[in-house]
């Protein structure tokens, strides 16, 4: 729990479809009780404190290559700060210095 914010939830809202499904599955692997809400055309994915999207896991679910820069194609909104966005991980956190999972690259 990040004490600096009144409500320590991070999340993304994605255009529904294949990439969205793979990203949601990849996050659910880490956070099984993540909140997944479907609206017409989009999916809202929220987790407590921090969200780490691992490129390799998304690729596994998608069954094809995927570039983490392409997250910008499907993410329409977010809550939290993007504190890391490179080829291995995208990290969304309220802790401004959060570098994600540093042991796992």
């Amino acid at each position: 729990m990040n004490v600096r914010v009144d409500r320590s939830i991070v999340g993304i809202e994605l255009m529904a479809g294949e990439e969205c499904d793979a990203i949601v599955s990849a996050v659910l692997e880490d956070v099984p009780d993540a909140s997944v809400v479907s609206l017409p055309g989009l999916v809202q994915l929220d987790v407590p404190d921090r969200m780490i999207i691992k490129t390799s896991v998304v690729i596994e679910y998608l069954g094809r290559d995927w570039d983490s820069r392409d997250l910008n194609q499907v993410v329409s909104a977010y809550r939290g700060y993007f504190t890391r966005w490179d080829e291995d991980q995208v990290v969304l956190s309220w802790d401004h210095d959060d570098q994600g999972d540093v042991n796992d690259v």
Binding site: M15, P40, Q73, V74, S76, A77
Partner: peptide, 29 residues
């Protein structure tokens, strides 16, 4: 660009849904 496209899609306007969700994906930047 998120709530209104959901309403658009729910009323058959897929073009509006697609346009506005991609617009809001620019807004993330």
């Amino acid at each position: 660009f998120i709530a209104a496209p959901a309403a658009g899609v729910a009323n058959g306007d897929f073009g509006f849904g697609q346009a506005h969700l991609t617009i809001q994906s620019d807004e993330t930047r």
